[in-house]
Design a binder for these strands. Sequence first.
DNA 1: AGCTGTGAAACAATTCACAGCA
DNA 2: TGCTGTGAATTGTTTCACAGCT
Lengths: 217, 217
Amino acid sequence: MEFVEIPEVVILRLPVYVRALTQLTDECISVVSSQQLGAHLQISPAQIRKDLSYFGRFGKQGRGYNVGFLLRELRDILCLDRQWTACLIGVGRLGRAIINYPGFTPESFKIVSAHDHDTSQIGQMIGDLVIQPMSELAESILSKDINIGIVAVPAIHAQEVVDCLVENKVSGILNYAPIVPKVSDNIVLRNIDPVLSLQSMTFYLGKRDGREHIRRA
Amino acid sequence: MEFVEIPEVVILRLPVYVRALTQLTDECISVVSSQQLGAHLQISPAQIRKDLSYFGRFGKQGRGYNVGFLLRELRDILCLDRQWTACLIGVGRLGRAIINYPGFTPESFKIVSAHDHDTSQIGQMIGDLVIQPMSELAESILSKDINIGIVAVPAIHAQEVVDCLVENKVSGILNYAPIVPKVSDNIVLRNIDPVLSLQSMTFYLGKRDGREHIRRA
DNA sequence: AGCTGTGAAACAATTCACAGCA
DNA sequence: TGCTGTGAATTGTTTCACAGCT
């Protein structure tokens, strides 16, 4: 009897399961096997069963998993049953797209405060938020009990904004700036970087004959 | 003497190295050790050396790596010295933000065609592109020699758009829709999904006392 | 019969540690 | 001395295969 850390790769897959199960719920499918779920997500059934087994025994032998029950359990594990609050830093084009993105709110995340360094934008509305100066960030985080900072400023300012968020005690940061910011290890950091995705893609696109992906050892 | 496939994780790290080396170039630093580079990126020096060793011997013992040389080599490996062309499908708020994002063009990617299903938008300009109907997608891909499709349509339409791109022979797809699309395995797919990032983040945020991350085995 | 849950086996990635070169 | 490049060791992840439940 010993303690086992849950691998981060497993945690990264749970939201994918949540999404698939939500879709199955919408389709009024109430039971699913690891086989079926795996076929849907292109993940092996064994991996799904192993992933879930880190958290408990959610299935029934011979039947599979009850979709609604498993969905509730996973949402609970991921703490998706509460509303998480976020502040957005940077209201340029990217920031405006983020704030208007309709996908966050139904998924437990709400942007409740928007800030920018640029004083000429202060006071403007975007969506139902007033753009506030950086000097009010600390106050916003405190008074609105903000958990997550979303960084949408140019690369040059990203590290200082991240530092500022950390000082003001957000717990997680979603960073859209094209840098890998340094954060203390009690902060959960996620980076969104389409350019990195494209630049790794082209390795495979450029070498279509299938021989350059191997090397002589 | 045998052949070794290069692991995908290695390929995913190369663009990160490219970015760091580009920054060092801007700072007029001409030599860097795996130690220094690793400290900058929070990656172990051994991993950097191992990654690079899949492709050749770029360093000098006792000195380190020549920044300019290594950068050129990596850009060459990733095929970043050509201009890649992309078409954008979906010109809603997200699509507009993507098309106006200034980070793609300097990094070898150019959006040269924008399409939407919504006929009321056809003919409008965004940036320097005219919004075209889906019916002209095939023609655009062919005439503009488009390599990459960028999907920014609602989840419900994403799979059909992806299928359409695949039929018209793009080689890579950058998908912003919140689904895991099915593609044939000769297509390189990258997904951008901030909601999944946030939903895995909250696992760690919700369980701050540090004991729930372990289970009894 | 059909499917889960899970140790054990297989495979993959990372780190170690050191020979060898500048 | 300082650093690379790389086999070997270690650590992490996925798959296998089957006991056991429904």
